[in-house]
């Protein structure tokens, strides 16, 4: 293996950003209020927060889609394909908490679908990916919300998400410079490295060690 230091340290990009692309997401000290007031970032991590009204009577269908998603590997596989998502969740909001006076009790006309996600890459790449990779899933989840134009073409879909994207006032990520791919690679590498460290103590002959070490490098080459 004759990689240069720069090459081995190059970060893996999201599947949609060619490695070596000069675009970066943001620097850490940026005010969360960016150009259009809604896009929040911390390092390479980007936040989207959306809340949409569910059409009357459709809530059980949304729950079913989510329940199925939790129990079917198909969705998990689809989301793995979108390998730039760190964490994401959906919550069906059927009412807002009441803490007593002077708060006036809220009586929502609709249930709302709340969506929160943490990913790396740009806001546009994210929506593009959902539109390209899991359009049927998008239709199943947001098709029951008012105003959803469908996942394709992506223009109206982006406009819809943008219109419903809520401004974040403080955003925090524990490892903001790491992409999801990097995190996964690091977790895999550490596990293999720990195993090799144990194995290494039993290999006293230098040539045997070199062979084992080279085999280890091949094993982890994609995780570096």
């Amino acid at each position: 293996m004759t990689r240069t230091p720069t090459a081995t340290r190059q970060r893996s990009g999201s599947p949609l950003v060619p490695v070596g692309d000069a675009r970066t997401v943001a620097v850490q000290t940026v005010d969360v209020r960016t150009v259009d007031g809604v896009r929040a970032v911390d390092g390479r991590a980007t936040a989207i927060t959306v809340m949409t009204p569910i059409k009357p009577g459709m809530t059980p269908l949304v729950r079913l889609v989510m329940f199925a998603g939790e129990h079917l590997s198909v969705l998990a596989e689809a989301l793995v394909k979108l390998s730039f998502i760190h964490y994401a969740r959906w919550s069906i909001v059927t009412g807002l908490p009441y803490n007593g006076p002077p708060q006036e009790k809220e009586r929502l006309h609709y249930d709302y679908l709340f969506f929160e996600t943490n990913f790396n890459g740009t806001w546009d790449e994210y929506i593009d990916a959902f539109s390209e990779v899991v359009p049927n899933r998008m239709k199943a989840i947001w098709g029951t919300s008012f105003g959803f134009p469908g996942p394709r073409p992506v223009g109206p879909f982006k406009a819809y998400i943008h219109a419903n994207d809520l401004a974040v006032d403080h955003y925090y990520g524990a490892y903001p410079e790491a992409t999801t791919k990097t995190v996964l690679a690091a977790l895999r590498l550490r596990e293999k490295l720990d195993a090799f460290r144990v194995k290494a103590t039993d290999i006293t002959d230098p040539d045997d060690f070199k062979r084992a070490y080279d085999a280890f490098l091949v094993d982890i080459q994609h995780d570096l």
Binding site: L79, R89, W90, Y175, L187, L193
Partner: peptide, 23 residues
């Protein structure tokens, strides 16, 4: 929460950070 997904649900913050450092 109705549906929650993570790319690495079994890794704690400490484990992620240690792994990134080890890498």
């Amino acid at each position: 929460t109705t549906f929650f997904v993570s790319a690495y649900p079994d890794a704690s913050v400490a484990q992620v950070r240690e792994s990134l450092r080890a890498r």
